[in-house]
Design a protein around this nucleic acid. Structure first.
Lengths: 217, 217, 217, 217
DNA sequence: CATGAATGAGGCTTCATTCAT
DNA sequence: TATGAATGAAGCCTCATTCAT
């Protein structure tokens, strides 16, 4: 967790630091991310980073947790309260997930990186915690769908929630296969607006929504 | 690709080197894997590695490709020629995939690591290539199922193959969620035989086979 | 020497600061002791330390001098005025020295650390001063013994005082050898009361008192 | 322990490295000694040090053990086989110890530093080992004196050996008190030959030999 | 007088790769 | 073809001290 020093920072300075750090961890996996590059990019002294956070891992945890919260706040906020059908619900869910990525590429990519992070001694513990956190978010969505009797009764919530999370990621991967292009390059593509990107990824969402429907009902 | 020097190596020396290198890249992701540790473990000269391979990436590519080929050779070899149903076919497929992991932990883990590897400048190109390679293997399996009319006609092969691959990975993840235990620790658990491990992971396979059936038929 | 700011501090704040600082310099040698840890532990501002003292060395000098004065005040206060024999006198002296350590572990350990500190550019000057200070204390004890004609006439006071000081330290070392245990761990051992500790170290005191008697009479 | 790489080094290069490293650890205590200064002084690459030794501690252990062995080899070699009296024996012993310091200032100082090193987590274990090693050397000397019946029967060997070691160090300290000068500056004083130094320290040796005689017979 | 953020030098260590033998 | 010493950049982190508020 951030030290008080970090929280006392001026809004502007804190924002600049967080932006730079997010981009670093979005571009590189944990081990490859460099604190040196961050301090250089944020134009602060090398020692300062340790005034803000305990160490590299601490900074990483903060950023990842922040990103996860932001993403799920965004999704929860924008989901329709009463989707007419499961299909509509899933479509909305996955679309919002992509929209968040398009609007916040660094946050989105960081979350994807973290999901891919291989267990290792240094991060261990945190990754498990992170996975439980994201699972709990998807569980909420699954809960909502279950309440509306959208989901077959014999499927338990934890499995449904697991499927939601998995299919969310699969959309990006399927897009990569079909477009023969890295999802993350696509996310960062400045020539396309968020809406245009949604348009292009729509068919991948459709395919996986259909598949998931088959699995859930 | 290995240099001729590598191919001229005595069977025994080459095997030892490959074993040690596989274990290193299985234990650590690409960046964290250390050539220093490999040469120490394989008891060869530091320079030798560069007699055998161009550089770290070259060695990595060789090992990963080797592992992928081994795994799919094993699966193709052991799959029933004429499975009675799609369900049986899927169950066999996923079971063999797990069995390979249990019998060849280093190869299995290396492949999982590679699948999780984040795109980066150094590896770029290869990871895409790798993904196409594995996709092509799964495409073969999908092809087989399609020929037997196991799959709905409106689903195209590339999508089916994508689902096969995704669900194969999801089994490991779902196991982690349910057993609250890392799949890879489970794979390496010496107290259990391969058969006992299959027994324990069977229900995760079942769940995902059922879900995939819903998506495919 | 402390700045006026330090002396104007509230009793409670000064005490807390001194306690924490003593523990730090007792646990780590001068170089390894960290002002960062002290301010964190004493819960004061980083800058405050420089309002109280000139710098790290200044703080160290204050603490060490304080500790030395405390120890010798304690010993002088508790020594019998008219010991019957040299043997009794030495035994009392060394016993009190240990008792002080047991009752004030931080002060005792700090003094031991300081005695072991290697001359170096930064501390130079002070260490010599410190050694003269402690020597002067032991000289007083030696003086007392000489007055009572406890010591052979041909032995000069400065040599006797040097022997007193050396043997005082030797007791700790000899205890370490015999008990195969660090004196300082022993001092901090919470399972033993001060009296029990005295009991355990008594034989080391005895041995060295006997040896010193041989040297002095 | 040194890595093979170190042992394979050319005599000249190894000597230069050891010389520089010895001087560094002789001038500074363990923590204050700087590998950076060593590599700069020995004019080698920063990484090279880790080709030779595991880490800083490993290097330190090697140097200290080397120094201890050298010193005691020197003393054992030059001690008279049949000293006429205990007094002569002690005088020889302590004189040789000083002579070694004068002829090998870096080694001598390193040993003194190590004897003063405060227990700390990083070195712990080694310091105890070191103390047992030096104790075993002095025990041999004590043994020799006991065999000749130089020592009172009721004094056990381990105590006698402890006294030998302690008095050996005390000579340096007593010299400091009397000459009001650091022993180590004295050792390094280029204006005096080893013989002249022996002459100047003789009276300190005499005083302590006399005191020790009183304690031992 | 107190605060606490900023500083940047310096600490030890690991790394992939090169190249002379 | 094998060897293994050399390289030096880069890694993370800690430190005592300063200074604007």
């Amino acid at each position: 967790m951030p030290k008080p020093t970090f929280l006392n920072l001026s809004e502007e300075k804190r924002r600049r630091f967080v932006d730079v750090a997010l981009k670093e961890f979005a571009e590189y996996e944990y081990r490859a991310a460099s604190l040196n590059r961050i301090v250089a990019g944020a134009d602060i002294a090398k020692g300062s980073i340790y005034q803000y956070f305990e160490n590299k891992k601490d900074l990483y945890q903060y950023l990842v947790t922040y990103a996860a919260r932001e993403k799920f706040r965004f999704m929860a906020l924008n989901l329709r309260e009463n989707p007419p059908t499961l299909k509509a619900f899933l479509f909305d869910l996955f679309t919002l997930s992509r929209l968040f990525d398009f609007q916040n590429p660094a946050l989105g990519k960081l979350l994807l990186n973290t999901a891919l992070e291989v267990e290792n001694e240094e991060l261990n513990g945190f990754l498990q915690e992170f996975r439980k956190l994201t699972a709990s978010f998807y569980a909420e969505f699954a809960q909502g769908a279950a309440k509306r009797r959208f989901i077959r009764q014999d499927i338990d919530i934890s499995f449904a929630s697991f499927l939601l999370e998995s299919f969310d990621k699969m959309i990006c991967q399927y897009f990569e296969v079909k477009a023969d292009r890295l999802y993350l390059d696509f996310v960062l593509d400045r020539r396309l607006s968020a809406e245009e990107k949604l348009e292009k990824i729509k068919s991948a969402i459709d395919s996986l929504v259909m598949a998931l429907l088959g699995a859930l009902v």
